[in-house]
Structures are given as structure tokens and as C-alpha cells.
Design a protein around this nucleic acid. Structure first.
Length: 495
RNA sequence: GUCCCCAUAGCUCAGCGGUAGAGCAGCGGAUUCUUAAUCCGCGGGCCGCAGGUUCGAAUCCUGCUGGGGACACCA
């Protein structure tokens, strides 16, 4: 805490100004509203009440200017000593000396235009609403120079409230994030899909490949997992007869942290009965085109120095065709030894054993194909071994009806014609169980109740998972996932 | 988990073996139309932490802590 500001709290109380008053201060306008409507005189500006942070002070003798920043923007304030003739200390001491930049104040007065043409509130009464006890890193910008920016990422993330106070652009990212979520919700609701909630605490985790967080329920003396996915629960609901369900799902994965990964992140998952992955591709195209248009105002966005267009339709390429394009041959024809040679040829790190041919194929795809797909691209018909929850392809052996949508070189969405054959599903999960036996930490555990649900009959279903954080990054041109999470995970400060 | 980079005033940074610096913010004064207000004056620091080298360390070395980037992992 700033000791000077602390001392001002005492001084204010001595002068009869409570720095944290109980009384509310209802406002009747905002900075943006005044700036927008005053020139047209569309509203009465003779008795405005607005509140916000004191942002700048330009003190002179008997009259001074200040700037108030509220949630809509900045507006200039004008104070005159003559207006406080009964209690001149309100101007001379409280306003000029005891109010600091960052203090939350409420003002009342009338709007006028200064000689230099700036719309300004002539303050007749003001009240301190909450004292700010820390110096605020307020930026000053001109065409030539920028003073005192608050740029240290660690400080910005640890004290996001300060980041938000100081950087309107950060606020805009999060407003847009909410607009994105809302646009998706509207899109799904317009089609009659039902928004649902499923458990975050799960006794068996599944639906993705990842190490889970574990916890414990004392009441039942039961180990529990935080969900890595909600897929298996949403499919149970389709079994139960809902024709289409979706959920915005905070998922938790006990994996590495980097520019694209936070231990907790958000996906929206959607399951629609009687449809397949081809239908889902068209839905995703429509969805993203609509969301970009609504949240950004355009389907074309700048991301990491590139221009990306979300207008439908998107390029489609089959998994093995894309890989063939990259390495010049069909990797399905290669032995494990030949695949290994290919991995080494491209100077990719050979995975830790135990690994199988399919792991080498996935490695080649992830390193040689995915990063090059900048424009929205559907990669379809994945190898079966990589997709234990997807239905076998209707005509091509060895692959499943699955697509990933790659944008900006990263996976944005993942979808299947869902596997609804309980016999096939059991075999696939048994293979996963074998991988776990062999030390595969991310392989899926067996889930007998999910299999029983499939045995009751899952209609043919199209399923989708779409990364909300990644989509927000793309639509906000945010370079890291931390920029689109209010409170990204950081190691706690020691000492 | 590995490698590289960073850590100096509230904020943004300079200084890189010889007394700790600037701008913005702050404090005191002047100022009734300023808007990066201006003018005069002033204070502010365990130079991330702990060791080491040296006559002398913010500066060189080692370790630790925190952060950033890359890799690995996360198909």
C-alpha cells in the first residue's frame, strides 16, 4: 500500500469525507453517452450524474480540469473553486490534494463545451466513492511517445484487475469472448439444441487422451477425477432420447502449460442424433461464419500476421492424402522401420518407447501437415487407432469417420460420426486398456456404464468438440491462451 | 522435464567491475480553458533471494525463486 495515500485516508476522514462511504451513487449517464448525444442535445445534460475512476488531473489555481474514466470511456471534468464557496476546502484540499488518480468518484454537474471544443462536465458536486490505495500504472500516449505502460505479463496476469483498469483493449478481448460464446449459444438454440450440464467430478474419466487431475470425496471415501471431457455423458443423454444436446464445458487436463494450453480450458461439445460427420462439417462452417460475423463483424480476421477467412466452405483433405502430399508417399504402405527412417529424415524427435507405427504416423502428421494449415481446413478420415470413439468409415477400411478443423496451424475442432456399436466400442476400449497396461498414461480407462448405455442403443449421432479458448485467440488475434483467460494459471508467488 | 532469455524506484526502462539514473506517477509551490497542461523546487531503491570471486559487485560466477520464449508432453 502507498503510505502517502494511506495518510490521505486519515486526512479525508478528519475533513469529514468518508473514503469508503456506505451510500450508493446511482448514475444517470455515462461518458460515452454524453460524448455521443450532447452535440445533438438529444438528452437533458443539465444535471448529469456519473461515476468512475479519476484518470488525470490538470490542476491550476482557481479552476482545474480532470479526466474521469468509466466503463464506456473518458470524459473531461471541470472544477471551479467558486462552486464550493461554502466549503472551499472541498476544492482546495479534497479535490486538489487528497484525490488521487485511480480513486473512484461520483460527480454531478452540467455539460458544456470548452473554448477548445471539448465536451466537458462542469462539476458542481462530487463524492469520493472508494479510495484507490495503490499507484495505478496509467499509460500516457501521444503520437511520439508512450509513457509508463503496464506490460510485464506476470504482473498483468497476477493482477488482472489492474490490467483491466489500465488497458481497454484487454477488456475488449473478454467482452468479445462472451460475444463468441453467446453467438454459439444462439446458433445452437435457434436449431432447438438443448443446453445441458454434466458432472465435472467423475468416477471414471474418458472422452479424450489426457492425464486427469485427481481428488477425493470424503463422504463416500471415493477417489474422483476432474473431467478431461464430457463426451461420454453427453452421449448417454442421446441414448436417453434427447435429439441434440450441447454443453459449454470447462475441462481439466494434467498436462504441460504453454502458449496454447492451460490446465483448465473451455470446450463446447455438441451431439446431434441421426446425423453424421459430413453433416457436422457443414454445420461447423455455418457456425464459425456466423460467430465471426457476429462477434467480430467480419469473417476475415488477422491472426499472427496472417489473414484468415472463416467464410464457408472450407477446404477438405483426407488425413492420409494430406500426409502423402507432405512426405511424397502413402505412409500406410510403410513398415515401422521405414516410418522411423522418415521421422529421422525430417529430423523429428523419435518418441519414447513403447510406441507403435501409428504413433510415428501421428508424429509426422502433427509436425509436417498441421502447422501448415492456416486457412480453415477440414482434415478427415483419421486412422482408426487414433480415434477409439469414432465410427468405422462406411467404405474405407482402417480409417474412421472423423474430422478435425485446423485453423492457424492448430486444432480448433474435432468431430466424429459417433461409434454406436457396443461390440466395436468394447474392443476399442479394451485396446486402450492394453495400452494403459503397457504404460500409456493418456489411454482411456474402461467405462462399463458407458458401454451398457451403448447396449441400450445410441442412434447414429454426429458429435463435435470446439475449443472456445482457441477460437477466441483466433478472433481476437491473441498470441497466447493467457490473453483470453481472465486468470491463467501461474505458480503462486513465494515469500 | 530440457535449453535460452529476463528480474534495477509504483510503472516503463538505461546503467553491465569504481558514490544508483531517466521519463511517467508522487510530494511542496505558482497558475480560472487545460487536455502528455505548463513553470519552479523535492523526495523516492535489501539493483528478485542466497552464496562465491574481487581491494571493490546492480555489473563477473554458482545455486535458488518467479516470469517469458523454444522444445518435449498435450495425437
Amino acid at each position: 500500500m502507498d503510505p502517502i495515500r494511506q495518510a490521505k485516508v486519515e486526512e479525508l476522514r478528519r475533513l469529514g469525507t468518508e473514503p469508503f462511504p456506505t451510500e450508493p451513487f446511482p448514475t444517470n449517464t455515462t461518458a460515452a453517452e454524453i460524448l455521443r448525444y450532447y452535440p445533438q442535445q438529444k438528452l437533458d445534460f443539465k444535471a448529469v450524474r456519473l461515476a468512475g475512476r479519476l484518470w488525470r488531473k490538470r490542476l491550476m489555481g482557481k479552476a482545474s480540469f480532470a479526466v474521469l474514466r468509466d466503463h464506456t470511456g473518458d470524459i473531461q471534468l471541470y472544477f471551479q473553486r467558486d462552486d464550493f464557496a461554502e466549503r472551499p476546502e472541498l476544492y482546495d484540499t479534497v479535490f486538489k490534494k487528497l484525490l488521487d488518480l485511480g480513486d473512484i468518484i461520483g460527480v454531478e454537474g452540467f455539460v458544456f463545451t470548452t473554448k477548445t471544443g471539448e465536451i466537458t462536465v462542469h462539476v458542481q458536486r462530487f463524492r469520493l466513492l472508494a479510495k484507490c490505495l495503490h499507484a495505478l500504472p496509467i499509460e500516457k500516449e501521444t503520437e511520439e511517445k508512450t509513457y509508463a505502460a503496464f506490460t510485464d505479463p506476470e504482473l498483468r496476469y497476477r493482477m488482472r484487475y489492474v490490467d483491466l483498469i489500465v488497458h481497454p483493449r484487454v477488456r475488449e478481448i473478454f467482452v468479445r469472448r462472451t460475444a463468441i460464446v453467446q453467438a454459439i449459444r444462439d446458433f445452437f438454440n435457434a436449431r432447438g439444441y438443448l443446453e445441458v450440464e454434466t458432472p465435472i467430478l467423475q468416477t471414471i474419466y474418458g472422452g479424450a487422451f489426457a492425464r486427469p487431475f485427481t481428488t477425493h470425496l470424503h463422504a463416500l471415501d471415493l477417489p474422483l477425477f476432474l473431467r478431461i471431457s464430457n463426451e461420454l455423458f453427453l452421449k448417454r443423454l442421446i441414448v436417453g432420447g434427447f435429439p441434440a444436446v450441447y454443453e459449454f464445458s470447462k475441462d481439466f487436463r494434467n498436462e504441460g502449460i504453454d502458449r496454447y494450453h492451460n490446465p483448465e480450458f473451455t470446450q463446447v461439445e455438441l451431439y446431434v442424433a441421426y446425423q453424421d460427420y459430413l453433416w457436422m462439417m457443414e454445420l461447423v462452417e455455418q457456425l464459425l461464419e456466423t460467430v465471426a460475423q457476429k462477434a467480430v463483424g467480419s469473417t476475415v480476421v488477422e491472426y499472427a500476421g496472417q489473414t484468415i477467412d472463416f467464410a464457408a466452405p472450407y477446404r477438405r483433405v483426407r488425413y492420409f492424402d494430406a500426409l502423402k502430399e507432405a512426405v511424397g508417399q502413402d505412409v500406410r504402405a510403410l513398415s515401422e522401420r521405414e516410418l522411423l527412417a522418415l521421422v529421422q529424415k525430417y529430423e523429428l524427435p523419435v518418441p519414447e518407447p513403447p510406441y507403435e507405427a501409428i504413433d510415428l504416423i501421428a508424429l509426422l502428421f502433427d509436425k509436417l501437415v498441421e502447422p501448415k494449415l492456416i486457412q480453415p481446413t477440414f482434415v478427415l478420415d483419421y486412422p482408426e487407432a487414433l480415434s477409439p470413439l469414432a465410427k468405422k468409415h462406411r467404405s474405407e477400411p482402417g480409417v474412421v469417420e472423423r474430422f478435425e478443423l485446423i485453423v492457424g496451424g492448430k486444432e480448433l475442432a474435432n468431430a466424429y460420426s459417433e461409434l454406436n456399436d457396443p461390440f466395436d466400442q468394447r474392443q476399442r476400449l479394451e485396446r486402450q486398456a492394453a495400452l494403459r497396461e503397457a504404460g500409456g498414461l493418456e489411454a482411456m480407462p474402461m467405462d462399463e456404464d458407458f458401454l451398457r448405455a451403448l447396449e441400450y442403443g445410441l442412434p447414429p449421432t454426429a458429435g463435435l468438440g470446439l475449443g472456445i479458448d482457441r477460437l477466441t485467440m483466433l478472433l481476437c488475434n491473441a498470441p497466447s491462451i493467457q490473453e483470453v483467460l481472465f486468470f491463467p494459471l501461474l505458480r503462486p508467488q513465494s515469500g
